[in-house]
Design a protein around this nucleic acid. Sequence first.
DNA 1: CATCGTTGGTACAACGTTGTAAATCCGCCG
DNA 2: CGGCGGATTTACAACGTTGTACCAACGATG
Lengths: 332, 332
Amino acid sequence: MATLKDVAKIAGVSVKTVSNVVNGYDFVKPENRKRVEEALASTGYRPNLGARNLRRGRTGFLGLMLPELSIPYFGELAGLVLQAAQEHEWNVLIEQTLGTRERERNTLSALGPHLIDGAIISPEALHTNDFEDLAPGVPLVMLGEHVVDVPIDHVGIDNVQAARIAVRHLISLGRRRIAAIGAHPQRHTAAQRLDGYHSALEEAGLAPIPELVLPALRYHRANGAEAMAHLLALPEPPDAVFCFNDLLAIGALRAAAERGVQVPSDMAIVGFDNNEESAYSLPSLTTIAPDKAAIARTAVDLLRRRIAGGTDLAPEDVQTPFSLEIRNSTVA
Amino acid sequence: MATLKDVAKIAGVSVKTVSNVVNGYDFVKPENRKRVEEALASTGYRPNLGARNLRRGRTGFLGLMLPELSIPYFGELAGLVLQAAQEHEWNVLIEQTLGTRERERNTLSALGPHLIDGAIISPEALHTNDFEDLAPGVPLVMLGEHVVDVPIDHVGIDNVQAARIAVRHLISLGRRRIAAIGAHPQRHTAAQRLDGYHSALEEAGLAPIPELVLPALRYHRANGAEAMAHLLALPEPPDAVFCFNDLLAIGALRAAAERGVQVPSDMAIVGFDNNEESAYSLPSLTTIAPDKAAIARTAVDLLRRRIAGGTDLAPEDVQTPFSLEIRNSTVA
DNA sequence: CATCGTTGGTACAACGTTGTAAATCCGCCG
DNA sequence: CGGCGGATTTACAACGTTGTACCAACGATG
């Protein structure tokens, strides 16, 4: 593998001059520039990023910590983060935590400043004090969950409002017994969505029905199916369900179908995330559609700002847009 | 950020002694070892991987080139590769090509030995000579597509056999007009699956019906829907479809439902890949289920072998197991 | 013609780590 | 007590890059 030294020897100039050409420095005699460029081409020179970063004190890498790539929301998001990072010539290192606090702590503590310039994290189980213990020494941007009392930039949508809009939609269709699937003791986003759910009920003058609020420990399809099965076994089942993500909704859809419950006539279902698959389910899924590209772009931008030196800026909490995507699981 | 030098100063020893402790060298006086360890702990020292790798000539990174993380198959696969790589203390750098030859070429050529120790690639559009042009100088393992005349390790399933088994299944259900969706002029895997399709028809004494073989330029849900719409508009539509991946099948499922065609009674559908979502579609999807974990593990192992020095080993082509997952899109 | 600024080029050091070879220490043997 | 040999430690160089400081050549300016 060719190094600057090799190229310099061939071109008959100093190492630094080659470096200057490679880095687009202006003042190089055209003749020398040409010779260097030829030498570069003939050797197929590629800079050794390790060495360059060692010198520059930057690594060229961003970390991306998320629960699981096989979860569509995170797969889609990761793809968009990769794209946004690429536009700024960053490579992305992805770390999966499977949503366990243990692995999230490990990952956080492994986030040395030598490995990455900054990280985008999507924690599910981290506690406030984990951040203090393990302060990784690089800028972080948090997605989704918002651990409030930690001074870290955050990007996400207004979960309360989004949930409210979803439930309002169900109410506007005449539904009155509206269930919620996805309550979770630790998750902030779950609490917020539950808030929105309750406030929408309240503003419509509907009394909350506690047994229609179901928890979900994980947000997978199986959990949604399980919850829906439980709801349908109630003496008085709901006429609509707001699921805290699309996977839960897809599971719910299936459980309903298996029991001959018609969606949307007997049971309207709204999801959250707008996974690609949700436009193709049968029936297609009405869902809250966050602007994932905006989330990815914003996260990378915030990180850029911090890395560029804004260490003592106040932590920002950026809210990205979302919309309600109305499909056949609520309106035939 | 603490460096070896800082730690050395605190512990009152030389840099090298600290390095020795960090790297588990045996002959360090217990007393010094203790002092160094304390200093390490008190500074929270973390090795600068860039510098270490510069010195060692290795990077600790694996590349993973794939079309799109938002495609469930690749999202799931990427997750498994990350896990397999992690077991050998490798970090993984993911690069998305969107399946374009242009970006695949770029990625391949950017795969300098400085950045990664080896790469797992899942090309869709690369030509044989691209590999010669751009020989990245690090070991590669290819997944899925098999560009035959390139001497590179390959991992995948027996596509011909898998397709044959899928189509046999349809035939065993009494279907006689069996369509195929996913033919593609360049893709090797498409050609192989088409082979399997034809050979299954032949062994059952069924004459191939050319207009039932539909191409798909991309393998997304929309392409499947489009193809199915086309099939249903034929004067004599098929009674079964073999789709070359699950996304096509999901699209086909939807197109059928939209036109009131009952699956599986009027139309049986088989997919390929066993995406997680396919167990939850309505009806659930019969599909070829490759052992994705085995693919990921095998790919990482092959890479390990090469990186460990086996440069002049003959290229291997490992076939991983698969099964036919029978669900309600063929059997009610 | 002396001075200056601009352009073009170079040598050197440094980033943090580890391999090599050489230095130092120590107990023990003769 | 001199020296031997292993244990322990160290100085130094090197990995490939780039920032800094400096040097050289040149035309223009006064």
